[in-house]
Simulated scan of single mutants.
Amino acid sequence: MGNKRVVADSSRCIGCQTCMAACIEAHDIPGNIAAPRLRVTRTYEISAPVACHHCEDAPCAKACPTGALFFDPKNHRIGVNEDNCIGCKSCVMACPFGAVSVATTQVPVLMGDVRVGSQTKSFVLKCDLCVDRPGGPACAEACPTKGLTLVDEERLAELTAERARATIENEA
């Protein structure tokens, strides 16, 4: 079985950014950064969310010098270990889809249980498929037009074949 991913149907996307808001809300928990792991891009006539493709041969994970990005066989995705991120942005440069970013935030410096200051910490931001969320990806659940779907490689191949047939029929 191949990796899973969230795919966007640009013909259904209305550019409302509800997916981004749902993603922020899903990650607004202690120890995480409340920031979207996908972004809506727009051209003159089309808008569509861009999210991690969880590539089988993930360039982002290969480029990461610390193992902050890794293949997660249990969840069929490219996972993130935030503790290993050093903020070098090699993953950002390696991603062919522009679906990875790095953010920084202030984290407490503790001496035992006492906070003695704070320091800047970098975090990789990319789609994690909301694996800890029982309903699956928050973005797909929140999309008002059902333009986002969680698929595996087999379903992706079926969708690609369906779109190819539709294109051929429309051109005939």
Rank of each mutant, 00 (worst) to 15 (best):
E153Y: 00
M111K: 13
F71K: 12
D152P: 12
F71R: 07
E25R: 09
V100C: 08
E56H: 08
A21I: 09
C143N: 06
D83R: 14
C60G: 11
K146M: 08
C127K: 07
K74E: 15
R115P: 03
A26Y: 07
A22G: 07
E171T: 07
G112A: 12
S118L: 00
C55K: 11
E153C: 01
C23H: 09
P73V: 02
T145S: 12
C95V: 12
D9R: 14
H76Q: 15
R115L: 02
A58Q: 04
I14D: 03
V6Y: 09
A103N: 13
K121G: 03
T43W: 04
C16V: 03
V40Y: 04
D72S: 04
M111T: 05
A172Y: 02
A140M: 08
C88G: 07
G135M: 08
A164Y: 08
R77S: 10
S11Q: 08
C64K: 07
A21N: 03
T41R: 12
T43R: 11
V92C: 05
A61C: 07
A164W: 03
V7W: 07
R77M: 15
T104D: 11
K126S: 14
G112D: 10
V116Q: 05
C64L: 10
A103F: 11
G15F: 01
I46K: 14
V80M: 03
L159R: 01
V80H: 04
C143W: 10
A99L: 05
C64A: 08
H76I: 00
N3V: 06
Q17M: 09
L159P: 00
A22W: 01
E82Y: 06
I29V: 15
T149S: 09
N75W: 14
M20C: 08
C64M: 06
T160C: 01
L129P: 04
P49R: 12
H53P: 00
V109K: 09
A34S: 13
A166R: 14
M1A: 14
A164Q: 13
A21G: 10
T120H: 03
P30M: 04
V114Q: 13
A161H: 03
L156V: 02
D72N: 11
V92Q: 05
E162G: 01
R165P: 00
T160H: 01
V131M: 05
A35P: 00
V80R: 03
K74G: 05
M20E: 15
A164D: 11
D57I: 05
